[in-house]
Design a protein around this nucleic acid. Structure first.
Length: 181
DNA sequence: GACAAGATTCGCT
DNA sequence: GCGAATCTTGTCG
């Protein structure tokens, strides 16, 4: 599913401000056999709770005390799994994204990187558990877009030991709106 | 109740 | 390339 989400459109309408982009980079996490996942070994806590819910909702969490990261919960009740959206290519509401990011120019620094994606789309802890089939956050297909997908290991999860080697990062080839390795 | 560490970003060198 | 910013969460006592 993380791979399938590449190329799809993500929309948010927050405070009456519409923004959207094309998902260009994702990473997969799951609650078993993945030490990089907060919910590994079925660790069900207040924070990870939402990952054990049926898919189609948002898992938001604060990273390094500064950045909110946006994840799409993807599995069934009791089986934790989520996809981290790491980068998007902005398409609608770029002025709003620039304002939220305190930037003046549209470039990859605007929406490449999970913390940047959340900030540009206006997502924060208030959206924890929100439905992704709603008037606030939703996804749309992008049938006319053609592209290739590159696979790699996930970023920033060295602490996960051998699980850091899992090929669970996907990004759109030849698109500048991705995080550099 | 205390403490260590983190799915990052940005500015400075 | 390096290190600071910043605070929630989970774990342990």
């Amino acid at each position: 599913l993380a791979k399938d989400l590449i190329g799809k459109k993500i929309f948010t309408c927050i405070d009456d401000q519409l923004t959207a982009g094309i998902i260009t980079e994702t990473e997969a996490y799951r609650g078993w056999g993945d030490k990089a996942c907060h919910a590994n070994e079925g660790k069900r806590t207040a924070r990870t709770e939402i990952m054990f819910h049926p898919g189609g909702v948002a898992y938001m969490y604060l990273c390094y005390g500064i950045h909110y990261l946006f994840n799409i919960v993807t599995h069934k009740e009791g089986e934790a799994a989520a996809v981290l959206v790491r980068a998007i290519e902005p398409t609608i509401g770029t002025e709003i994204m620039l304002q939220r990011r305190n930037k003046v120019k549209v470039n990859p620094a605007l929406t490449a990187g999970p913390g940047n994606v959340s900030q540009a789309l206006g997502l924060n802890r208030n959206h924890y558990g929100n439905s992704l089939v709603s008037d606030t956050i939703w996804l749309e297909p992008n049938p006319d877009l053609t592209f290739e997908i590159t696979t790699s290991t996930r970023i920033g999860v060295d602490y996960a030991g051998e699980d850091a080697l899992l090929p669970w990062r996907f990004y759109m080839k030849n698109n500048h709106f991705v995080t550099k390795k």
